Amino acid sequence: MKFQFGLRRQFLATTLGLALASSFSLSVSASEFSDSYSAYQAAVSDKNYTDALKHAEQAYQLGKSLYPKGSIDIGNLAMNMGSVLEINGKKAEAFKAYTEALTIYQANFDDDAVELIDPLLGAADTATKPKLAREYFNDAIDIAEDTDNQMLLANTLMAAFDNLSHTPVYNRTIQKYAIRAFDIYEEELPEDALVRVKATYTVGMIRKSKKQNSQAIELLNKVVDQFSVLDYSHPYELASHAQLVELYERKGQSDKSTQHCIAIGSMRPWLDSQEQVPLFRLPPEYPISAARAGREGMVQISFIIDESGFVTEPKIVMSEGGSGFEKESLRAIKRWRFAPKFVDGKAVATPSKVQLDYTLAKS
């Protein structure tokens, strides 16, 4: 039996053979183990991971009395326990279970055996130190590289990227994990495969971070195109529209960003009680004369967000600190872009207000 955890890998809930009667301890019956393991499988099937953990731990303890020390059966039970420990947020205990499984697997399989990938990924995902996680991921990638299974390699690379991209060890090498995975997905999967679309978004954001804006725009538009055929909004579609607004505005192509402002407005409800967050925000410059004088300020501006998400009719409501702050605030806010409000399926002009605070860093 297999069940999936997250988007990274599958854990094996292996059906353990009960025909090893000669190795059974007299203190535990085969039926006790079988009942516990069956309960674990049923809990996993029902996605009841609290019960799954309880029964996985029971099956593991009973299995240690039934099967020879260091046998692959014990390794499988440790893997099952590690997976549900991880799902239940018990990372330290999960890491211990995964590394035990890894030790057993290493003793039972060759160094480059594909069976080692799952415990390596489990240990990497639950390791508390990013450098240690990177070592486990690199070992898993090395094994996947030696197989003919390109999808296995791509999934392993993406698992490493997903985990390490938010850690201090994130660098260009880890960026290349996602790019390589994306290249494989393009070869192996249809355009509308969700894993490929998500990888397209990821690589689009990498290109954006490297200021490769034309490539980022091309990739993020592909994400939008794939999700546009769905009858529901997906977070990746919304995020791609928002990123495209910023990218086009920074290139001075407001006409192209407009369609994405409108798309977001049609996807996201406008709450009159909340402050509308700009999709693109050009920060005002601090007036030089005020900065030299050590003067701070504040400007409140009312304006209209039109049907295309442009700021129109900006007016000063209140200000402090002098006319320089007002001038800079008006200059900046005219470049801001918003998602327009939709009423009965149509974009409508809507009033809004914002306050810009000018403060100097304290030395």
Rank of each mutant, 00 (worst) to 15 (best):
Q4V: 05
Q4W: 04
F5G: 01
G6N: 03
F11G: 02
A13F: 04
T14D: 06
T15F: 10
G17F: 14
L18E: 08
L20H: 12
A21T: 07
S23L: 12
S27E: 09
V28F: 09
D35N: 10
Y37A: 13
Y40A: 02
A43M: 00
K47S: 12
K47P: 02
T50C: 11
A52Q: 07
A52I: 00
A56G: 01
A59K: 04
Y60K: 10
G63H: 00
G75H: 15
L77A: 08
G82W: 07
S83N: 07
V84Q: 09
I87S: 06
A92P: 01
A94H: 00
A94W: 00
A97T: 07
E100P: 00
T103H: 14
F109E: 01
F109S: 06
D111P: 01
A113C: 01
A113N: 12
I117L: 06
K129S: 09
L132M: 08
Y136S: 08
F137W: 11
D139K: 15
I141N: 01
I143S: 08
Q150Y: 08
A154R: 03
L157W: 02
L164W: 01
N171K: 05
R172G: 07
R172N: 05
I174H: 13
K176W: 01
K176G: 05
Y185C: 15
E188S: 03
E188I: 05
P190I: 07
D192T: 11
D192N: 13
G204R: 11
M205R: 14
S209D: 04
S209V: 15
K210Y: 06
K210F: 10
K211A: 13
K211Y: 14
N213K: 13
E218I: 11
L219V: 02
L220E: 03
N221I: 11
V224P: 00
D225L: 15
S228V: 13
V229M: 08
Y236K: 10
A239M: 13
H241D: 05
V245Y: 03
V245T: 07
E246W: 00
K251R: 01
Q253K: 12
Q253C: 01
S257L: 03
H260Q: 03
A263D: 00
I264H: 11
M267S: 04
W270I: 14
V277R: 09
L279N: 02
R281G: 05
I288W: 14
R292N: 12
A293L: 07
A293S: 12
G294L: 06
R295H: 12
E296P: 02
Q300I: 13
I301T: 02
D306S: 02
D306E: 01
E307A: 11
S308I: 04
F310H: 13
P314E: 13
E320N: 08
G321L: 11
E326S: 13
K327A: 07
K327R: 09
S329Q: 06
S329E: 04
L330K: 00
A332E: 09
W336K: 08
W336A: 03
P340C: 05
F342E: 02
V343D: 14
A347G: 04
V348W: 03
A349H: 09
T350K: 09
T350I: 14
Y358E: 02
L360Q: 10
